[in-house]
Design a protein around this nucleic acid. Structure first.
Lengths: 187, 187
DNA sequence: GTCTATACCTCGATAGAC
DNA sequence: GTCTATCGAGGTATAGAC
């Protein structure tokens, strides 16, 4: 894969985590990378293709997460890894890229809508799997089914990446702690 | 208050719940209301002023919610009312307007950023109050403090309004039920 | 591959007639 | 108040030289 193309993708990925897909422009990319807008079109002829590349990047990242999760022994470690992946770069004011796309769902092209649905389901599957395993092993304790609990966790953590930008105080830590409390495990 | 002005505000409010503030245009408003773009500027000279009016509408709505909450007897009824307010129009594909603004936080003018922070805190206060009251009365049961539990609830429900648009299946019901289970009350 | 130049569109906003 | 007409900025995208 071309070096410049990768750099463009990484920068676009960062920009959807700050401005959102509709609100960042080829001009923004041009400034950050140091090539002209026209040159960007050489790598990504249309913004839709760039958007699809971002979706594919997210899918690859989720695939890697799933692989690493499989390699870990305990559900507790798996959950910690997911949480770390979710909040890793939030300190720098970056929202979850998946949430960013979900929020713009209505104004995105159908090709991207399809990928966003896929991404949303993959993530819920991963977290459901972790919680189910922890429940089966008696490590996590919660009422209801793992899918519902996963839905609660994932949706909460997604918005939490927004609340961290809007409010100065760190609500994220409170939310994570609260969730750990619900699972009856020590943080 | 002028009738047309109110109609414009109501339509703009709906548009941020579908497209988002940056992605809806005066042209969109023009189509829906049936007056020209230029005429809209008579009521709202700049889009920023329209944005601020939307924020004030949200603040008024939260004020009304708070008043109604105060008038209700039981914490359980109060929580039900909040949930109804949050998910009332989600079936029609509308996301939470507060979430919509939070997601675009970075690209909005400072005047709107300030209002969004205010809105975010008001909402958390309302829900924290409800949960604290339920905890004090022994009606809700949960570990940890009411603010943390409120943060978990609010963030989860916000994203849930997005998941309802992206996924066909109704995750919202699962999430609400799961939350009620955590409070150890019957749905 | 990267550039300059530009086409074409949509945006928010203004001028001025009625 | 509402309109037509238009402006200037900014958006994506293309043509064509190097």
């Amino acid at each position: 894969m071309d070096n410049k193309k990768q750099e463009l993708l990484a920068t676009a990925y960062k920009l959807i985590r700050t401005k959102g897909f509709d609100s960042f422009s080829y001009h923004d990319l041009s400034k950050e990378i140091g090539i002209t807008k026209a040159s960007i079109h050489y790598y990504y002829p249309s913004k839709e293709e760039l958007g699809l590349a971002i979706c594919d990047l997210i899918i690859r990242n989720l695939g890697r997460l799933k692989t690493t999760v499989s390699s870990l022994a305990s559900p507790r470690e798996k959950l910690d890894l997911y949480i770390q992946a979710m909040f890793g770069e939030v300190k720098e004011g970056l929202m979850c890229p998946i949430l960013s796309l979900q929020a713009e769902y209505d104004v995105l092209p159908d090709s991207m809508k399809k990928k966003i649905r896929e991404i949303t389901e993959i993530e819920l599957d991963i977290v459901s799997g972790i919680l189910q395993e922890g429940l089966d092993q008696g490590i996590f304790k919660f009422d209801g089914d793992a899918v519902s609990q996963a839905a609660l966790l994932v949706t909460s953590f997604k918005s939490a990446t927004l609340y961290a930008r809007v409010l100065e105080k760190d609500l994220i830590k409170r939310i994570i702690d609260q969730f750990y409390r619900q699972l009856k495990i020590e943080k």
